[in-house]
Design a protein around this nucleic acid. Structure first.
Ligand code: FES
Ligand code: FES
Lengths: 163, 163
DNA sequence: GGTAACCGGACCGTGTCAGTCCTGATTGAG
DNA sequence: CTCAATCAGGACTGACACGGTCCGGTTACC
């Protein structure tokens, strides 16, 4: 259904959450304030760090910090960081691979304009646009509260309640 | 990787192929001229028929025909016919379902503008645009040749040669 | 009536993905 | 100096959607 992976959605949530405050934030802290399971948050942060969207501080009192302001992060870049490059079909860009019966395919390489249009649309929207849009104040996290360190064994209450 | 399903790619191939000639074409015939396995072609045609993109003629000497000229078929409609409605995340449009921890999600419903941008990009490109683009003449199928009926047990030679 | 083609399902192997866990490497705090 | 907190990177597993195939039934031409 042309659906992006759930990890990408989490990445946007984490990045927006990371925007509050200038201090580094640990993955357990982010997990607690977003409701996402902690191992998953760690995984997302690692991918984001590999893509240079966040900077990491190792060691005790370490954590993550935004590498760039949200305004400079197009949503397409987040998708590319999590799900790999945006390629609708197997035969876009210069990749000649994959398509086995490419000698017969009449639309060989014809997905390129479509792919390009999507990439352009995804580059025009930044994470700030997604944050700025009208969100009920209830959902907003206070910028300075909840930034206290939470112990690793904090009760999150999301263990097996959903499914 | 934001990749669309292979069936959708096949659908575009089949639709472009169906544009040649005004007569109805059977699925074995299309399968032979495109190199796609015949049962798969039948499945694609069925989905396309359900979406009213092609019209079907039952009975002997039956087959499929384009319901509209290629110019009037945006590629987004084909994707919607094959992969369902275009919904990047689970929470777009009015669907409040799926998102379990929606009370915490800070980007609730914020994928809507992104989704909309993609839909607009996908609606602006028609199948004719994908066909018209420069395709080497070698890959073009002669418009009137190969339109002869092929028996169902024709040797296609794609059984296990590729993998 | 026979035959050729579509119709609408069900069916199953395979591959990808979400989620978890474990073992290091690094750095600040005590 | 020692320890604990935290990130880094990979391996592993179960769930699930997807690609692909097949079957009985129906419709229309010959
Ligand atoms: S889909 Fe790649 S050549 Fe046809
Ligand atoms: S992804 Fe749907 S509410 Fe967050």
């Amino acid at each position: 259904m042309l659906r992006l992976s759930k990890l990408t959605d989490y990445a946007v949530v984490v990045l927006v959450r990371l925007d509050a405050g200038t201090q580094v934030q640990t993955s357990p802290c982010i997990a607690a304030t977003t409701g996402i399971p902690e191992p998953t948050v760690a995984k997302v942060l690692k991918s984001l760090s590999a893509a240079a969207l966040v900077t990491s501080q190792r060691g005790a009192r370490g954590g993550y910090r935004l590498a760039r302001p949200l305004e400079d992060i197009p949503v397409g870049e987040v998708i590319a960081a999590m799900d790999g490059p945006i390629t609708l079909a197997a035969c876009v860009d210069g990749s000649v691979t994959e398509c086995e019966s490419l000698a017969l395919c009449p639309v060989r390489g014809r997905w390129d304009p479509v792919n390009e249009a999507i990439q352009r649309a995804l580059s025009a929207i930044s994470l700030a646009d997604m944050r700025e849009a009208a969100i009920p104040a209830v959902f907003r996290v206070p910028p300075d509260a909840d930034l206290v360190r939470v112990p690793r064994n904090a009760e999150l209450g999301h263990s097996n309640a959903s499914r």
